[in-house]
Simulated assay, not measured.
Amino acid sequence: MQSLMNTENKTITLEKTAFLTIDQVSKVYTTSNGDYTVLDDVNLTVKEGEFVCVIGHSGCGKSTLLNMISGFNQPTTGTVKLKDKIIAEPGPDRMMVFQNYCLLPWKTAFENVYLAVSAVYPHKNKQEKLALVEEHLAMVGLTEAAKKKPNQLSGGMKQRVAIARALAICPEVLILDEPFGALDAITKEELQEELLQIWRNHRLTVMMITHDIDEALFLADRLVMMTNGPSAKIGEVLDIPFSRPRNRAQITEDPRYYELRNYALDFLFNRFAHSEDPTDDIIEPEIQNNKLKIAGIVGGLIVAAIAGFTLFQSFNGNNEQSPKNNTQQISN
Rank of each mutant, 00 (worst) to 15 (best):
I287C: 07
I163H: 08
F269Q: 05
D239H: 10
I87V: 15
K148D: 05
S58V: 08
A131G: 07
H136E: 06
L115P: 02
D40A: 15
Q313C: 00
E8P: 10
H211A: 10
N67T: 00
P230A: 00
T327S: 05
K85D: 14
I175L: 10
T108H: 09
S26F: 15
I282W: 13
L44A: 14
N332S: 06
A273K: 14
P241R: 03
V298F: 03
V133A: 01
L301N: 05
R165M: 01
D40C: 11
T210F: 04
E135V: 04
T210G: 04
C102H: 04
K148P: 00
G141K: 14
Y36M: 08
P92T: 07
D93T: 14
E15A: 13
N325Q: 07
N9L: 12
F242K: 06
S331L: 13
I213Q: 10
D281P: 00
V46W: 08
Q288W: 00
Y263V: 02
E178Q: 09
L195W: 12
I55H: 02
N319G: 04
F309D: 08
L223T: 05
L174R: 06
L191H: 04
L223Q: 03
P323M: 01
N319H: 08
R203C: 06
N201D: 15
N33K: 12
K147A: 09
L219G: 06
L217D: 01
N326H: 00
T310L: 07
Q74W: 15
V42Q: 08
T143M: 05
V133L: 01
D277S: 02
D239E: 13
F180L: 05
E178I: 03
Q152S: 11
G49Q: 02
A304I: 05
T30H: 13
R261C: 02
W199C: 09
R248G: 08
T227K: 11
L191I: 05
A166I: 06
A88T: 15
K233I: 04
A109T: 02
L137K: 01
G229Q: 09
E134Y: 01
G49H: 03
M5W: 10
D214E: 15
G78S: 03
Y257H: 13
N43I: 09
P105V: 00
A216D: 02
G296D: 02
L311Q: 09
K293N: 06
T76R: 15
Y257R: 07
R271Y: 08
L130W: 02
Q152C: 08
A182Y: 03
E111F: 01
L238E: 04
